[in-house]
Structure formats: C-alpha cells, structure tokens
Amino acid sequence: MNNIQEKPDLTEVERIIAKYNGKDSWLVMILQDIQEAYNYLPEPTLELVAEKLNIPLSRVHSVATFYSSLSLQERGRHVIRVCDGTACHLKGFVNLRDEIERQTGLTEGQTTPDKRFSFEVVACLGACAIAPVMSVGNDYHGEMSAEKIKDVLSKYK
C-alpha cells in the first residue's frame, strides 16, 4: 500500500494530458481531471504534468495551490462541503459547521484517519433557496439543521 502511495500509476495522467493535446493553456482543467481520477493531486502527477506540458513545475504548483477546489492533500472517500454562502450563513451555517466538527472531530480542511470523510467549507454551492445547504460527495442536502447532521452522515460509510 505504501508503495502505491509513493509511486502512483501515472498512465492516467498521460491519458488526461493527451486528451488536452498537451496544451498548457488547459492546465487548470488537466489538474481537475487528475484530481477526479486520483482524488487529489499527488506530487508525482504534478511533476509529470510539468514535464509533459513543458512548463516549470513552479507554475504547476502555483496554479494547484491557487484554486480552492484543487487539493495537494489526500482526501477522504466522502467530501463533506458545508456552504457558507450568504443565505446559508444567515440561516445557521455556523451551527452546522460546529456540529459537523463535533461529529467528525475534523476542522476545515482535514480528513479523518480512516479516510472516510474530508471536511471543507465552501463559498457557495449555488443552492441558496434551500439554505442552509451541505453536500456530501455529489449529493445535496438542503434545509439542514444541526440536528439532522448525524443522520445524513450515517448514510456514508
């Protein structure tokens, strides 16, 4: 297992880069696709991207750390995103966040040791009409309250 983590299979990266014809202008999308495939951006993938696109690794690193959806840290199987958009903020974001922190023991940006959950606070999920909102993976949960958190999380193993 350790070996795999140290040296991930990079063929997927090559395939992704080929899909974008190796053009560096697609760097942001290439990194998104790599994250989709590997769950995060392992360092060797970034090194390969720099090499294949013929751009400095410093630029790849700069882009990878600028955009908040990109992560250089390994994330959990289920990413909990709590929306801190304005509507959600007004309707009790803080209490939702605190309850998730209590339930999972995580603070923003962390992952549980068993890699079950990662916890992120995001700017806006764009579902303001059903605020407050959180999402787990691709599922949206609207009109949330601190009380419902336990139930929602229990669905994700």
């Binding site: 202008s25 697609w26 760097l27 942001v28 999308m29 955009y67 908040s68 990109l70 700017a123």
Partner: peptide
C-alpha cells in the same frame, strides 16, 4: 468549455482570461 476551479476572483474578466490560459487568476 473551460471549467473554473474555485476562485471568485476569476469572475473578473482579466483574471478569468488568465485562468483560461492556464495560469493563476
């Protein structure tokens, strides 16, 4: 289609263009 990657500043036109070009916004 070019997908943004989570940066509010990319709503600003010159930042958006930098992002499409593969740079930080």
């Amino acid at each position: 289609i070019s997908r943004g990657a989570g940066a509010f500043v990319c709503g600003e036109s010159t930042a958006l263009m930098a992002s499409i070009e593969g740079f930080v916004g």
